[in-house]
Design a binder for these strands. Structure first.
Lengths: 154, 154
DNA sequence: CTTTATTAGTCAGGCAATCTGACTATATCT
DNA sequence: AGATATAGTCAGATTGCCTGACTAATAAAG
């Protein structure tokens, strides 16, 4: 009666190519960090903001510098920093070395986010190291590090 | 005199964590595919469209099915498919098995894109395999495949 | 030391890619 | 036949990015 059952799954999918193989774990890192940050009370942070925490220097960084590192325009970085400043995660202080510039610095709340994100990733790394075995996981990180160095981005 | 030279680079950056290590090569795959597709005359495709080519079945797929696989809403997938149909990469044909549905199918032009994207990734994989050595590159793919299988996404 | 060019950042406006909610038409189940 | 579920569209909003034009401060050239 039913015409429903689609032809019986012609094959078991071609193996994923490197694009999907990188995308899936990468998206999982983003998802996990976001989930853990929400649980830690930082629910007003969205994935687009993570790059700021990742790229900012301990003593603060210029907005233009952050934009270059993140490879977005200074206007887009301004938008992200505005939001983060409004939500109390960063503050702008005048740069004593250059009257045009200000330094974007993490507040105490911003520092807490950085620590929470780092802890979240470390938990995930622990899970993955357990899955693959520590040696293979370390080899994975070394290989990815070499690729990243070659690509030459932040 | 000059106050300019920032303190001489306090340290050589902490090692990247797994998030950045996955993000950098992943973004490189996207950048390279896009670059090669532009060169091949498919400059009207944007990275957001790639997922459709990646997820569509040879005989066509339902829009809702594509949305589920891509983990976006059916409305968002509708937006992408509308664009691709308007640009001649896919066509909607009525689903003979279900009057509510249509099947999204690649046109000849869409097939050409899929082949070009695959070739682009294969070139990139060749470069990376040369960089790491074939054995380490194969091990990298195996490790990423196991992580992807565990995460359980497309 | 003044003019010129460069740099840091903002303002204004626009587009792409997502979302939610409400709806229509068709299918399926009881 | 009636109730429920599913495929897809319509309408409207938001986020994250862009380009272009601008201001203010600095640095370089004469």
């Amino acid at each position: 009666m039913t015409v429903k059952p689609l032809p019986p799954a012609p094959v078991g999918r071609p193996p994923r190519m490197i694009g999907a193989l990188l995308r899936i774990p990468f998206q999982e890192t983003v998802r996990r960090i976001h989930e853990d940050l929400v649980r830690a009370g930082f629910g007003d942070l969205r994935p687009a903001h993570f790059v700021v925490f990742q790229l900012i220097d301990p003593g603060g960084a210029r907005q233009t510098e952050l934009a270059e590192r993140a490879q977005i325009t200074k206007q887009s970085m301004g938008y992200l920093v505005d939001y983060l400043a409004g939500a109390g995660y960063v503050e702008r202080v005048p740069d004593p070395r250059d009257g045009r510039a200000s330094l974007v610095r993490l507040t105490a709340r911003g520092d807490a986010v950085e620590r929470a994100a780092r802890a979240s990733l470390e938990r995930l790394e622990g899970e993955w190291a357990a899955l693959l075995g520590p040696a293979r996981y370390a080899a994975l990180k070394r290989a990815l590090t070499e690729l990243s160095d070659t690509i030459g981005q932040v």
